[in-house]
């Protein structure tokens, strides 16, 4: 399985999303960034497959403008 699964794969999408936001709720922005960084590391290690991770990196990168400022 060297292909990133980009189809819906979570049982309870609304529940997952709410859980993620709730996790960040008590944190200020800097702490939220730190938490996200740890999530990336923890999940990447769990996946443990560089090909899959690379596809995830690509998808995330391509869907993100170089600068978040819009004019």
């Amino acid at each position: 399985m060297n292909k990133l699964n980009i189809d819906a794969n979570l049982d309870d999408p609304d529940g997952f999303y709410a859980q993620l936001l709730a996790l960040h709720e008590p944190l200020d922005e800097a702490a939220s960034h730190a938490l996200n960084a740890k999530l990336v590391l923890i999940l990447a290690n769990h996946i443990g497959n560089r090909e899959v991770i690379t596809q995830a990196f690509d998808l995330a990168f391509k869907s993100t403008p170089r600068s978040s400022h819009t004019f």
């Binding site: 960084a37 740890k38 990336v40 590391l41 923890i42």
Partner: peptide, 10 residues
């Protein structure tokens, strides 16, 4: 630095 510190925290 954020990722470095995340590694050290874990």
């Amino acid at each position: 630095r954020l990722f470095r510190d995340a590694v050290l925290d874990l």
